[in-house]
Simulated assay, not measured.
Amino acid sequence: MDVVDTHCHIISEDLARYPRAPIGGKQSEWAASRPVTADGMAARMDEAGIGQAVLVQATTAYGYDNSYVLDSRRRRPERFVAVGTFDPLRPGSGARLLDLVGDNGLAGVRLFTSGSTVPTQGEWFAAPETHDFWRTAEEAGITVCLQMRLGPATRQLVEVLERFPGVRVLLDHMGYPDIAASPARAGQEVAELAANPGLFLKLTHRNLERLRDAGKEAADFLDPVLAAFGAERITWGSNCPAAEQSLPELLALARNVLTGLPEPAQQNIFAGTARRLYPGLGAARN
């Protein structure tokens, strides 16, 4: 099966060329303890049978300096596309966005509003100062990854999607729905967001581990989400090496949880959706 990993991180061993500059001044534990270079990621992909990957900027290592993912993309254009962290609050964000994407540039950008080193969910991504960014992303067809947690900030997410209905937003880790507490309630929470056609979901180990642990109740989450979004708006990402498991183990986890889905749905989740979100990946590989 064609497989694209839409969420992996790389960190260089060359501190002089790629100095650390983590967002908020704090480096994540995984970035310090188990970094993986671009060469190392390519080797892990070969081991797992993954043809291509989206290099998502390691924000908790490099902040807004996207040099390493861009350079790695240029060295291996047949294997990688790059998604860089972006600050939409800076003046002229629309023009800056256009400067960064395109040939040999970023395939998309990521807004890091919450994470391991940013414990308080930021709601700034919907501020009026960001509208130039969102309007440009909408008009240019640029996929925007959004790292956020569903909850109080869901209102801001919906506000953006309604104001810019043509924009493509890929929600990292599905917004961290609380599957462990109640798969059914979490599934309903996520499914309700499907009314916004520009929203796509990134399914990672942070969701898949909870679904595995839920056993038969995993269907209480997956069924409404798949019915609402369709597999055409869901894509898989490993989160390697932030996840502790190996890349082959992370792919096996996803395949095991999704084993009951029809083949066309699995093809979309494991590659088809990714290729539509990031045309720079090219056509499917056999």
Rank of each mutant, 00 (worst) to 15 (best):
D71Q: 12
V36P: 01
S116R: 11
E138S: 15
S12H: 05
D71E: 02
G63T: 04
A48K: 10
G272P: 03
L250Y: 06
D71Y: 07
E47A: 13
P91K: 04
Y68G: 12
E159G: 06
M174R: 08
E123A: 05
H131G: 14
N207F: 00
L226M: 04
D103F: 06
A153V: 14
L211T: 00
A58T: 10
C145G: 07
A242G: 03
G84T: 15
D2K: 01
L161S: 11
G237D: 08
G115Y: 00
V190T: 01
D178A: 15
D220W: 11
L281H: 11
D71R: 14
K26G: 01
G198Q: 05
P88I: 00
G151E: 11
L55H: 13
C240F: 14
A181T: 13
L170P: 06
D71T: 03
A137T: 06
T204V: 14
I50F: 11
E263W: 12
A137P: 07
A265G: 04
E123V: 14
A194E: 04
F164W: 04
P128C: 04
A218E: 12
G49Q: 02
H205P: 00
T204F: 12
A271Y: 04
A153Y: 00
R96A: 15
S33I: 07
A21K: 14
Y18K: 14
F164C: 04
D172W: 13
R168Y: 08
E232N: 10
R210L: 15
D39T: 03
Q156C: 03
V190I: 12
F86G: 01
G25L: 03
E192N: 06
D2C: 10
G260W: 11
L251G: 14
